[in-house]
């Protein structure tokens, strides 16, 4: 039984059946990639996992507990973090503050009214955030405004914000979209390291086959809202149905 079990999930937007009958099982400590052509329902599926959308049918179980009906912040508190296609960070805050916020969220839960204590006195939180920044090689930028960072740095910062929470499952929505080849390779290396060193389970949505085949342990191919096939990268590469539905199309 995997850490994330998706069973029979369907979602309809008006006349469009975005997700048909999706079954998915993500094993602990693995990297599970979800690929598929545009409009296959990848993002809809992801949004169903994090509470942004509520599926019409089916169940989503995380670590034996149902995710459905919970709000995004509650699902995050269960141990699911999410990296967005365009980095979502607190642009008006400093880099250090960006990482301190998830530290507070982890220690104090979804709301705590400490209005009189001072941030400067929160030694252990600052230390925790600084250690995390050092891990992603961003410590020297701790006092920068997050909004002024380069795109690659924003991505690394967002990753640091997710990792400092020590999530059990990290969801990544096209983490290398719009990146240069060099940045993409750096991101692959970073993700590999995260998966191996911190043993964090990852589910990743990606267009770039290079990224998928260098990271994933298992791949699910989604087409028109239903999973076409689920297998190891080697098998997927040679699978005739996949070539037809996806890889073939990509070679226009």
């Amino acid at each position: 039984m995997g850490i994330l079990e998706v069973k029979g999930v369907g979602k309809r937007f008006g006349g469009l059946q975005a997700l048909g009958d999706v079954n998915l099982s993500v094993q602990e400590n693995s990297v599970h990639a979800i690929i598929g052509p545009n409009g296959a329902g990848k993002s809809t599926l992801l949004n169903c996992l994090v509470g942004k959308l509520i599926p019409d049918t089916g169940t989503v179980m995380f670590d034996g507990q149902s995710v459905l009906g919970r709000k995004p912040h509650e699902i995050n508190q269960m141990g699911i973090s999410r990296v967005f296609q365009t980095p979502e960070i607190f642009s008006d805050l400093t880099v250090l503050e960006n990482v301190m916020i998830p530290c507070f969220a982890r220690r104090d839960g979804s709301f705590r009214m400490h209005a009189i204590e001072q941030v400067a006195r929160e030694g252990s939180i600052i230390e925790q955030a600084e250690t995390m920044l050092a891990d992603v090689n961003m410590l020297e930028k701790r006092d920068f405004h997050a909004g002024s960072l380069s795109r690659g740095d924003k991505r690394r910062l967002e990753m640091a914000m997710c990792l400092v929470q020590e999530p059990r499952l990290l969801l990544l929505d096209e983490p290398t979209a719009g990146m240069s080849r060099a940045d993409t390779n750096n991101t692959i290396a970073l993700l590999k390291e995260i998966n191996e060193k911190r043993s964090i389970t990852m589910a990743i949505i990606e267009h770039d086959m290079h990224v998928v085949f260098s990271l994933a342990d298992r791949i699910t191919v989604l087409a028109q809202g239903t999973p076409l096939v689920e297998d190891t990268p080697e098998k997927i590469k040679g699978h005739p149905k996949v070539r037809e539905a996806y890889l073939g199309e990509a070679q226009h």
Binding site: I89, D92, E97, I101, S110
Partner: peptide
């Protein structure tokens, strides 16, 4: 200030 900056990220950071 985080609310002002990005409520979406706040939600996905486990904060209400």
């Amino acid at each position: 200030r985080a609310v002002k900056s990005n409520q979406q990220r706040m939600n996905y950071t486990g904060l209400n």
